[in-house]
Design a protein around this nucleic acid. Structure first.
Lengths: 228, 228
DNA sequence: CGCTCTGTTGAAGAGGCTCAATATGGGTGG
DNA sequence: CCACCCATATTGAGCCTCTTCAACAGAGCG
C-alpha cells in the first residue's frame, strides 16, 4: 500500500503533535529521525481491519476518516483526524490486529513512527508516555460518552447535542460549517441521512436553527435545542 | 466519603493487577507502600460525576459498577469491575473532573494510589506505562466497538452478540450465568428489561438458547445466534 | 410473613428505518 | 467556461422494531 506513495523526510508533524511538542528542540531532532513521512491521495487506504500495522500515524496535513464495519456490514464513522492528531495506537500497545479502517478524505501527508522506535523514545523520554496517556484518557472519555449517548438518547437528541457541540467549537459565532457530509454525519451519529435531513428541517421550522447554505448552520436557540 | 471506611495496609492487589505484577518482587514493595486499602460496603459510592478524584482505584475484592448518567438522566452501565481491574484513570491523566459514577455492588476492598505517587512510579519504572497504555488501548478498543455496535446493530443483534461473548468467556462450556441483573444488562446494552425478557424468550423458542434458571443460560446454537 | 425489587407478559403507540422518486450541486472533461 | 454526471441530499409513504405503561408473578430479605 505504502510503496506507491512518495516518501520523504518531513519534520513539521513532530512539532505539530501534542505528544511530542513539549520536548526540547534538541530532543525533537531525534524523533524526526525516527519519523517517516508519506503522502496519500484522496481515497487511499492507510490501514484496514486485519492489518498488523505496528506504527503510529500522525496527520501532518489533510483529513483522515476512521471507521469500523459492524458484523452486519454497516459502516460507522468513529472520527475524523485533522493535522496534529494521530491514529494506529490500538494495535501499537495491544497484540491485536487493527479492527478499524483509516482512509484519506483528502490528499494527505502522514508521519509514521514504528512501534519499536516509539518504545525506545518512550523509555528515553518518559514524559512522552504522559502525553500519550492523557490523549488515551481523553479519547476513552469521549468514546464512552458517545456510547452512552447512543445507548440512552434518541436520534433527535443526539443530533441536537451534536449541533450544540459544533457551535461550541466554532468560537465567537453561532454559525458554523458541518465538518462532513450528511451521509458521514449520519454514520457518525448512528442514524440515516434521511433522518438528519428531516430533523434539521424540523429544528429549523421550530426556530432553533437556520440552515444558511448546504452545510452551513446558524444556531438561533442553543438552550431550546438542548431541551429537546 | 472515604472517611467512614476502614483503612488498612493491604498488599494483595499489587500482585493481582496486571499493571504492576510484571515488576520484580523487590520493586513491588515500593508500590505497596504507596497504596492505601479501603473497604466499601455494598451500595457505597466510590466516586461520582464532578469529583476531582485524583487517584487510581484497584479492585482487590468485590464487584464495582461504573455507570454514567445521560443528559436526560438515564443511566448507562459502562462496565463492571472485578478483582484486578482498575478505574479512575480518566481524571488521572486529564485535567477534567469525573464524568462517571463508581459504586460498590457488593462489599469490596479497593486499593488506591494517588496521582502523584503513580506518576513517580511511572518515571522510576517506565514499564508501568506500557502496561497502562496497553490497558487503555484495549479499553478504547472495546468502547469504540461497543459504540459502533449501538450505532449500527439493532437491539436483538446486540443481545445475541452479548450472549455469544459470555459463552466465549465461560471456557469449556456452553452454559454460563449472567454476570448482572437483567435490569443492569438492559442498561449496559442500551435497551429495556422488557425487551431483554422478550428477546431471550424468542431465542429460546427458536432453539438458539435454553434458560436453565433465573440467570443461567445455555447456548444451543451459537452460529444461529450470530446470524440473527 | 409481608414488603420491595426484579422479572415477565400484554397491548398500544411512536420513532426512526427502508425504499423509492426527485432535486441539488460539486467536480470533471470537453 | 459550460454542460453533464454522479454522488449527495430531500421528501413522502409504509412498516417494523422497540419503548412505554400497566398489571401481575416471583424472588430475596428483613
Amino acid at each position: 500500500m505504502a510503496e506507491k506513495h512518495q516518501i520523504c523526510s518531513h519534520q513539521s508533524c513532530v512539532s505539530l503533535v501534542p505528544i511530542f511538542n513539549h520536548l526540547e528542540e534538541k530532543h525533537r531532532k531525534e524523533i524526526i529521525d525516527a519519523v517517516q513521512s508519506i503522502s496519500y491521495k484522496k481515497g487511499d487506504t492507510i490501514y484496514q481491519a486485519g492489518d498488523h500495522s505496528d506504527s503510529l500515524y500522525i496527520v501532518s496535513s489533510g483529513k483522515i476518516r476512521i471507521y469500523r464495519l459492524s458484523e452486519s456490514g454497516k459502516e460507522q464513522l468513529i472520527r475524523i483526524l485533522y493535522p496534529g492528531e494521530f491514529t494506529g495506537e490500538l494495535a501499537l500497545f495491544n497484540e491485536t490486529t487493527q479492527e478499524a479502517y483509516a482512509e484519506a478524505m483528502t490528499n494527505a501527508q502522514i508521519c509514521r513512527i514504528k512501534r519499536s522506535d516509539l518504545q525506545n523514545l518512550i523509555i528515553k523520554y518518559p514524559s512522552i508516555s504522559f502525553s500519550l496517556l492523557a490523549e488515551f484518557a481523553s479519547r476513552l472519555e469521549k468514546s464512552e460518552k458517545q456510547a452512552a449517548s447512543f445507548a440512552t438518547e434518541k436520534v433527535e437528541t443526539r443530533i441536537a447535542l451534536y449541533l450544540a457541540d459544533c457551535m461550541d467549537l466554532a468560537e465567537q459565532t453561532t454559525e458554523f460549517v458541518l465538518p462532513m457530509s450528511k451521509k458521514d454525519l449520519a454514520s457518525y451519529l448512528g442514524t440515516t441521512p434521511e433522518t438528519i435531513s428531516r430533523k434539521l428541517a424540523e429544528f429549523e421550522q421550530q426556530g432553533y436553527i437556520k440552515q444558511t447554505s448546504a452545510r452551513q448552520i446558524k444556531i438561533l436557540d442553543r438552550n431550546g435545542l438542548l431541551l429537546i
